[in-house]
Design a protein around this nucleic acid. Sequence first.
DNA 1: TGAATTTTATATCAGAGTGATATAGTTGTC
DNA 2: GACAACTATATCACTCTGATATAAAATTCA
Lengths: 179, 179
Amino acid sequence: MALKNKSLYAILGILNVSPGTGYDIKKYCDTVLSGFWNENFGHIYPTLKKMLIDELVEIVESETSEKKIQYQITPKGQMELEAWLMEDSEIQPMRSEFMLKLLFSSNQPKEHVIKMLEDYKQLHVKKLEKYLDMQHDLEQGIEEISEERSRFLKATLRRGVLSCEATIRWCEETIDSGL
Amino acid sequence: MALKNKSLYAILGILNVSPGTGYDIKKYCDTVLSGFWNENFGHIYPTLKKMLIDELVEIVESETSEKKIQYQITPKGQMELEAWLMEDSEIQPMRSEFMLKLLFSSNQPKEHVIKMLEDYKQLHVKKLEKYLDMQHDLEQGIEEISEERSRFLKATLRRGVLSCEATIRWCEETIDSGL
DNA sequence: TGAATTTTATATCAGAGTGATATAGTTGTC
DNA sequence: GACAACTATATCACTCTGATATAAAATTCA
């Protein structure tokens, strides 16, 4: 099987929640999915065009006809989404520039390495705060989300929290070790 | 600043440890760096060629002249590496296909979602075992690594362990919740 | 010894994904 | 009503991915 365009599935999943423009899709990624999914305009628009040709999405003929293009998922698109949801997930390779830099820093001055770790920790403290805020908002039921979807969103947020906490603990432990 | 080729820094860091071929670099990524760095031949070879032109690396004239090309870092390459090590790291966007799939699975049969989580947990149990083995090997001092480098390698392994443990705990917690 | 298999080694390609930049209408605000 | 901020689409060069092709060297084992 050739290389898969993963953005396609992200777009199907988002449009399956509610129809929207390419811009809306980007906003959804930058907010709801921000903890574990990144998407660029430079990939969203070409992918939407391809999906239109493949009839996975269709254009909603909007009343206020401007230059904005509203998309919605088609039955074919829903089948494609469903098939992907049923597929087994494989382990994905990752790239952490920070960890790479750290490993190659054994000859750097100790104080610089400690500074690196402290900055990295701070980044994750901020990220953790953001997750906790989002968790709080979700608990308050500010957004109009079904009980069902809310439970899944909470699970993803919970993972973000645990992951941040683990990273923060690792930073502290490593700083304390003095390396 | 234009988009940066991160592979270049990975290659500089690896060659700074010891000279080697493109193939050696790939092997190093797949073993030592496997927890946090992925590299492909399709990017290593063209990058090495570019680095040769920019005089960041040079070819070692080897005695056993086959078609294998041995590279070593140049003083200019070491300066480039040093400059990168001193740069602040920024937060990097990520993509977890598993988390994306999970979030969009609120209408899937519960047993399928539980299965997904159990498979994902199992993947991380295996990964954790691998990290613990590597940690053990490092503790035994099997490889010939300097005390200094060994401490940094241990720190990266420790992060892998903590991260896996957090993921496993999250899986268990989420499975138990029944969603 | 020699056949089969695995490992070492380089190279190339199409397509996925990134981030910057250009353009322009619409909305908010001071 | 000027200015800033937001909405919206599009394109570009470049990075990165994973598949595939090729072939020599080393290893297995019959």
